[in-house]
Amino acid sequence: MNNMEKKTLYTVTIFSENTVGLLNQVTIIFARRGLNIETLSVSPSAISGIHKFTITTFTDKAMITKVVKQIDKRVDIVKSYYNTDEDLVFQEIALYKLATNKLLEMGSIEDIIRRYNARILDMTETWTVLEKTGHYDETQALFKELSEKIGVLQFIRSGRVAITKSKVERLSDMLAAMEAKLNRDKSV
């Protein structure tokens, strides 16, 4: 990406109803502003019936503010906000498929596993799958080292998952406030 050095990696967190086509509604807002989605992860949230999207993108603050407001505006989006890395605890998970014979020949597998805090997920005579969770640069470093030493047969990295450093999901506060407003409106 051009001008990457001037841009910040933002993590956008979106809580939505679990309805068909929502991912499309969200991604077209990024596309319209010409923003590449770096990583994407979608799963049920802690609140029943509400899904959580975690999306990362490189951009600037003015743009991410507008994008998040436009996402938030969609009817089935409950809440959307953005954070930078300082506000978050976050991880990605990576899987590495390696040739078992080369891995054994290398001899330093225990050292690598210890240094990278990786683990062996599955192993057969022909292939072995290593797993490592961490930040991008950490999973990437392991990929680089394995590639150089023995080659990597297959590699996959998940989208980022992130948790804010605040105590509760802000969404629960928001839902409570909305219910209170509804009850107040009803009683008027």
């Binding site: 939505s16 009817v75 089935d76 989006i77 409950v78 839902l175 909305m178 219910e179 509804l182």
Partner: peptide
């Protein structure tokens, strides 16, 4: 008259 994910008239 109410959708929890939709705030037509913000306070």
């Amino acid at each position: 008259t109410y959708i929890r994910s939709y705030i037509p008239k913000p306070d």
